[in-house]
Nucleic acid binder design. Structure first.
Lengths: 340, 340
DNA sequence: TAGAGCTCCCAAAGCGCTTTGGCTGACTGC
DNA sequence: GCAGTCAGCCAAAGCGCTTTGGGAGCTCTA
């Protein structure tokens, strides 16, 4: 059933039927009712390809997915996607993943923009002066950034959590508990979230007159193994930290293993706090010693991003609004006062 | 730059230019060269929306993503996606994720098929007589199943790993090591992979005259917590198992925690073997006791599925070919001979 | 040397929508 | 009673491709 058939059956022009269905005012209410009734009864659905060709609107949102043999997609992605999908579903928005060579995402962004395959894209894991943001901005492709860049000479819409505040609070708590040597096992410091977190810890330490020397920072890809290695190398120093802040739960698994391997105890010898993006399959309260965390649901962020993207597509949201979510500090058994 | 402009500039008809570009034989080699040269020089790329409207081909593959507030996307998905994306990239195939109400995926499949938004879909995590497979088959939407169904009255193309064989081998090894009470912590038994795995274990035990009673089986969603709970309940039985086969690495984390909490040791008191889909961020060799596994890269499966999907789209693959991959058995320190 | 059979190319008709630019008839105000 | 409005509808022109149905010119055969 296409528009032609439907309009013929209703003895109306395609114009009128199209307008009736799309809520244009140039059609009487009675006609509109007749049309919508018939459309529903016959299960008419406009062909999206045709509509897209005519309007240039795709009804899809896009994401450029960096891939490559040695590129690992962040496991957080799946949770983010849950939220995004949950919202998108209610709006019949599909998500297009355009795989890109991780070393040349630009080509893919250009293709996506040129093809007008999607109405908007989101960008995740931004770096300080992220080229992708400048690019999509310049290409005129509507977008939203999950996270923040820094040092760009224009404003842009984003959604981020308060990484600096979260790690500031976490570190402040550790300081209050008497810790003087606090270490940070961070994610890849090319990304702004890691920069903000480090900044937060540093600021908290500074206001207690403490430093965060390079030998107490690790910036690594967030795997269990890297958590283990980082923790070992930290704890085997002559003056090991008495507390560790860690950027992910998965790394925290490795930290716990390292602490145990070294014959140390949490929180007796080492206090541990980690950032929790809230995975259903790995919960901080179920660590052998329940883990204190800074918590922010990445799934909720996904849903919100879908919502704002939908709003931007339909013109309800404009401009460069930045949205920063506070982060919960959840104290559990893995932190204690510093020994001695 | 569109076809009209390009053909005008070349003093050729749109027909000829289109045919030259698409490799049709009705055009002389010299003309073809002129055309392709000009196209490249001016960066001409056919508008996919127009092409789609004209041909009905989308150049995209689809996946219906079940979502909902209480629905968790499997973290394996991200690894699968890495492989899929890596291959798809080389063919400029995009992936469309269509979010669906987890309780009513059918509507979404119908929409996807009716809209012809994608040329083919893949279906994952199939159940025995999976309705989705019958549905897409009946809708005439090309598809490929990742996994297998059972008891369907038609053949269909799929890619699966040898779950039964893998768990048969694992259990057989445990039996050879002298274990008599072997337990299985499985995934959700509504899914065929879990059914096959149970069958494999059962068969191995049977040929040694051993049974796999219900009280030594757990079928649960594959989270760390469920691994913990299952292991505890198994090990606190009057006659606890001396060996456990486990369906995922994430659950194995929980098993390890439970064993430790109970003051037991691996492999001294309990041997443990788990299935490993090969995550970059959680490796069996880095468990506190290196974990024996049945191993099969889900990323490789993703790439292969993309490849076959591409082949089906372009007509290179037809029919209902099923492909079953063998699984590696990797022995590490977590298994030992049965005590006593 | 006429007809058949190629090779190359073209004009035009789709694909199924949206949107532009009317057109008609009824209703208003003066 | 007449110009001016306005609500409500329509025909047709896109959107940018692919594909159908030729058709001109050339070579080959009998």
């Amino acid at each position: 059933m296409n528009l032609k058939q439907l309009s013929h059956m209703l003895q109306l022009s395609q114009t009128t039927v199209s307008r009736a269905l799309n809520g244009y005012p140039e059609v009487s209410e009675e006609t509109r009712r007749r049309v919508t009734d018939a459309a529903k009864r016959h299960g008419y659905r406009p062909n999206p390809s045709a509509r897209r060709l005519a309007t240039g609107k795709a009804g899809m949102i896009g994401y450029v997915l960096p891939t490559g043999a040695s590129v690992d997609i962040d496991p957080h992605f799946v949770e983010f996607l849950s939220g995004l999908g949950d919202y998108a579903r209610s709006h019949e928005l599909d998500l297009v993943l355009s795989p890109a060579d991780a070393d040349d995402e630009e080509t893919t962004y250009r293709r996506v923009a040129a093809n007008k395959q999607v109405d908007a894209v989101y960008i995740s894991a931004p770096r300080p002066a992220d080229r992708r943001i400048s690019l999509v901005n310049q290409l005129g492709l509507p977008f939203l950034v999950h996270g923040r860049a820094e040092g760009l000479d224009f404003d842009y819409p984003f959604l981020d959590i308060d990484n600096e505040g979260a790690f500031h609070e976490a570190a402040r708590l550790l300081v209050q508990l008497g810790h003087r040597r606090i270490a940070l096992i961070n994610g890849d410091d090319g990304q702004t979230f890691a920069i903000f977190r480090e900044r937060g810890v540093r600021r908290a330490l500074a206001s207690a007159g403490l430093a965060l020397p390079p030998e107490r920072i690790r910036s690594v890809a967030m795997t269990e193994e890297n958590g283990y290695r980082s923790a070992r190398s930290l704890l085997e120093q002559p003056e090991p930290p008495t507390a560790i802040a860690c950027s992910s739960l998965i790394m925290a698994l490795g930290v716990v293993r390292a602490v145990r391997d070294l014959g140390l105890a949490i929180p007796g010898d080492v206090s541990l706090i980690a950032h929790d993006d809230v995975f259903p399959w790995l919960r901080p309260e179920h660590f052998s010693v329940p883990l204190s965390t800074t918590r922010s649901s990445i799934r909720a962020a996904g849903a919100r991003i879908a919502e704002r993207l939908a709003a931007r597509i339909s013109g309800l949201e404009e401009g460069a609004r930045g949205e920063i979510w506070p982060v919960d500090l959840v104290v559990r058994g893995s932190i204690a006062g510093a020994a001695g």
